[in-house]
Nucleic acid binder design. Structure first.
Length: 479
RNA sequence: CGAGGUGUAGCGCAGUUUGGUAGCGCACAUGGUUUGGGACCAUGGGGCCGAAGGUUCGAAUCCUUUCACCUCGACCA
């Protein structure tokens, strides 16, 4: 018995993408707005998606030797200030606790915008010898960054995420860790979330405050805007020096370890919505959909229908995440729309006619296609179909991205592409901050990353200044 | 933080100009008829009109202050 729900149409994407997005997230009950601006309530359906994402990433972290920990929410101001670039980067968006127990505090405490500082201060206590290295820890928590413009999942003042923090003996080891984690991010995003990612390195301008270098995976949304979906930082020794993390190395000298951090957040849910969704609502990849299959009985008051539906549910529930919608007083059509909006990959219809024929109807959410299938070997059929849907969704998303990715050899072409076919623009870049800024000023597009997979566009000169360029970069307007 | 907009039932709105004690649609509850792509009939419950002050015999409506949310810009996972 589910509870009754609102039935309303979703604003078509082409009409108003922003409104489509808010319609979808509220009508499918993923989130609701809270009394405090920029803070959202993640409702059970949304949280279930997060749990499925979490589960897979957490598994991969553990497989690669990381352990989970938990560090405190509050960080003393003095700690936050220890790494200069870091404070500067985060200061504008930090929330402060100034009172406790009715009294003003001697030192104000910041609500973590990220935990490098508190973690490093603890690491400095714990690390003594190279024998203890590497440190490979992770925490699942929420962080607070006071944002001016907020949108559920995409930019909220508090968000759920995961932050890994590791220490290593050498730069190379830290670099290897940084790349390994980025690779895990990309792998799960592509295989589970069915979202193709562009991976590469951030520019100096866009990198994390206090990082030596930042790597990112970037996805492209339906409206042609890019979404930074996960970052992995090689922090070098910036923090370990500032926090005086040192140990006796193999030569019996005091040394500072090399440091990495990496994170993905509930923003990934925003990516799923905006990459796969359509005018009927959500389309969820089978591997992370809270419900993979919903059974809708037709004419459920008729004898035998509900029994048959329950029998099917029981036979499938071990293998799949199955729901049976046996709510009274709603027509099948209403339920079809409702579950489509929620993005459930497969709908199974079972009615009196099917029961007579020993069959049922399967309808897939990604294509809308309906097929009659025999009740025998139903589990096998469904398993195959779910795989097919997962693959098809990735392929569709990849096609969408490719269709929205163009190249530009000069600024006119750049601007033209951005207007006519908003999306990723691949262009040569000389590496200078001036050109990066100029491109942003003139077009609104930011440098998303310098991808690992390089190619030469046109004559190999910078799209902006026409000097010789060594790098090809992806540009886009971004969330 | 700049510019604009909106706050009246869970949601969407009317009522505000011209003050007279709150209404519509959907949703919700009950009963009945329905059920293969958003069914229908009947009955019913639900609102100190964002908040605080003021004007007035009387305020959703007029005045002042304040808070929140949305959209667009500048800044950001």
């Amino acid at each position: 018995m589910g509870k009754k729900q609102k039935v309303e149409a979703v604003t078509p994407m082409n009409e108003d993408f922003a409104r489509w997005y808010t319609d979808v997230i509220s009508k499918t009950e993923l989130v609701d707005y809270s009394p405090v601006k920029g803070f959202m309530v993640i409702r059970p359906y949304g949280y279930a998606i997060w749990e499925n994402i979490q589960k897979e990433y957490d598994k991969r972290f553990k497989e690669t030797g990381h352990q989970n920990m938990y560090f405190p929410l509050l960080i003393p101001e003095s700690l936050l200030k220890k790494e200069a670039e870091h404070v500067e980067g985060f200061a504008p968006e930090v929330a402060w606790v100034t009172h406790g127990g009715g009294k003003e505090l001697a030192e104000r405490l910041c609500i973590r915008p990220t935990s490098e500082t508190i973690i490093c201060s603890m690491y400095s206590k714990w690390l003594n010898t190279y024998r203890q290295l590497p440190f490979k820890y992770n925490q699942w928590c929420s962080v607070v960054r006071w944002e001016k413009t907020t949108r559920p999942f995409l930019r909220t003042s508090e968000f759920l995420w995961q932050e890994g923090h590791t220490l290593h003996e050498t730069y190379d080891e830290a670099q290897e860790e940084t790349m390994q984690m980025l690779d895990i991010y990309r792998d799960v995003a592509e295989e589970y979330l069915a979202i193709p990612m562009v991976v590469g390195k951030k520019s100096e301008k866009e990198k994390f405050a206090g990082a030596y270098s930042t790597y990112t995976m970037e996805a492209l949304m339906h409206d042609g805007q890019a979404l930074q979906s996960g970052t992995s930082h090689n922090l070098g020794q910036h923090f370990t020096k500032a926090f005086e993390i040192s140990y006796l190395d193999r030569e019996n000298n005091q040394a500072n370890p090399y440091h990495t951090s990496w994170g993905i957040s509930t923003r990934l849910i925003g990516a799923i919505i905006m990459v796969h969704g359509d005018d009927n609502g959500l389309v969820l990849p089978p591997k992370i959909a809270p419900t993979q299959l919903v059974i809708i009985p037709i004419a459920q008051h008729k004898e035998g229908v509900l029994d048959a539906a329950y029998e099917i549910k029981n036979s499938l529930k071990e293998k799949f995440r199955v729901e049976l919608d046996d709510m009274d007083g709603y027509t099948p059509g209403w339920k079809f729309n409702q579950w489509e909006m929620k993005g459930v990959p497969i709908r199974l219809e079972i009615g009196p006619r099917d029961i007579e024929e020993g069959q049922c109807i399967l309808a897939r959410r990604d294509t809308g296609e309906k097929v009659q299938v025999s009740l025998e070997d139903l589990a096998t059929t469904i398993e195959k179909l779910l795989d097919e849907i997962q693959d098809n969704m990735y392929q569709k998303a990849l096609n969408m991205r490719e269709q929205k990715t163009s190249i530009a050899e000069d600024m006119n072409e750049f601007k033209d592409n951005l207007t006519k076919n908003p999306g990723f623009i691949k262009a040569m870049w000389c590496g200078s901050r001036e050109c990066e800024d100029k491109i942003k000023d003139e077009t609104g597009a930011t440098l998303r990353c310098v991808p690992f997979e390089q190619e030469v566009i046109g004559d190999g000169t910078c799209v902006c200044c026409r000097e010789k360029a060594n790098d090809m970069a992806y540009f886009a307007r971004a969330y």
